[in-house]
Structure formats: C-alpha cells, structure tokens
C-alpha cells in the first residue's frame, strides 16, 4: 500500500463507468485476482476490493457525468481512496500487517494523486477506443453499405 500509481484501478474505474455493475464487478474480480497472484500478498485481498470498486463504478455509470475535464481525476481520486479503505479493512479482517495510519494516509494520498494525474489520459484513451470501435461497427453495418 505504498504511494505508487495504480493503472489497473484507473482502467477498472474507466471501464466500469461504461458497464453494468455486475460486469464491472467481474472485471474488478479478475483484475484484482491477477494483482493478488502477481503481488504475492494475501490472496483475495485485491480481488475483493477491486470487485467492490468495479461494482460501485458500474452502479454509478448512470449518475456520473464525465463532461468536465476534472471529472476523471476526481473520480479516480475518490476510487483510489475507496479502494484503499476497502483494502485496509480487509487486511485487518484477514490478519494482514496494517501500516500505521499516518503512513497509510500518506501512501493513499500519493497514490490518489498519481491516479488522478493519469486518469484523464486513461479515460481519454478509452473514449477514443470506444469511438473507434463505434465507427468501425458503423462502417461494417449492412445498412450503410452502398
């Protein structure tokens, strides 16, 4: 729980806002599981936290409007804090070593900042991909063929 950017979390938030809650939860589950397996920590910790973060993102898809330039950053910061809080609680429940609160707060703040910084890029990139796929689908649509 150090102060490093978490691109997986940001991508999950960005995708979750475009999905159904359950689908986003599944995505979060898989992403968290990969993170757990790669990290070597308590198995299930990130799986559970990312699952809930994904579900929350999917649930907020209809209520959050990302028309502001700061919206992705704000959303990423909030998501990061929420994920960190979840991980802290789950760590306590699972008997994992819990960092001292100041260190945890500092690490969370740094990670939230990093995630807030990369969030506009990730969200914009994802928006472009979606648009590109949309145009591709339109181009290959049988109704539009000459």
């Amino acid at each position: 729980m150090g102060g490093a950017p978490e691109p997986v979390l940001v991508v999950l938030l960005a995708l979750g806002l475009r999905m159904e809650p359950e689908g986003a939860a599944l995505l979060g589950f898989l992403a968290g599981l990969l993170q757990d397996l790669a990290g070597g920590g308590a198995l299930g910790l990130f799986t559970m936290s990312k699952l809930w973060v994904g579900f929350a993102a999917g649930s907020l898809a209809r209520t959050v409007v990302l028309d502001s330039a700061w919206a992705p950053s704000a959303f990423a910061v909030a998501g990061t804090v929420a994920a960190r809080l979840l991980e802290l609680g789950l760590s306590a429940l699972a008997g994992e070593l819990i960092p001292p609160l100041p260190a945890w707060a500092r690490g969370t703040a740094v990670a939230a900042c990093y995630n807030g910084l990369i969030a506009p890029l990730v969200f914009a990139g994802l928006r472009r991909v979606v648009r590109w796929r949309g145009s591709l689908r339109l181009a290959t649509s049988p109704e539009l063929r000459p």
Binding site: E22, L26, F29, L33, D36, L43, G44, L51, A94
Partner: peptide
C-alpha cells in the same frame, strides 16, 4: 442471473481471502 454472478464473485473472493486464515 447477474445478481447471482455478483454474489458468487463476492463469495469466491471471500473464500480466497479466508482460506489463508
């Protein structure tokens, strides 16, 4: 079905987490 999937995921993640205990 989607709710069932979600519950199953939560249970599975919980099981993974508590297996260690």
């Amino acid at each position: 079905r989607r709710a069932g999937l979600f519950v199953a995921l939560v249970v599975l993640a919980g099981a993974l987490l508590t297996l260690q205990l």
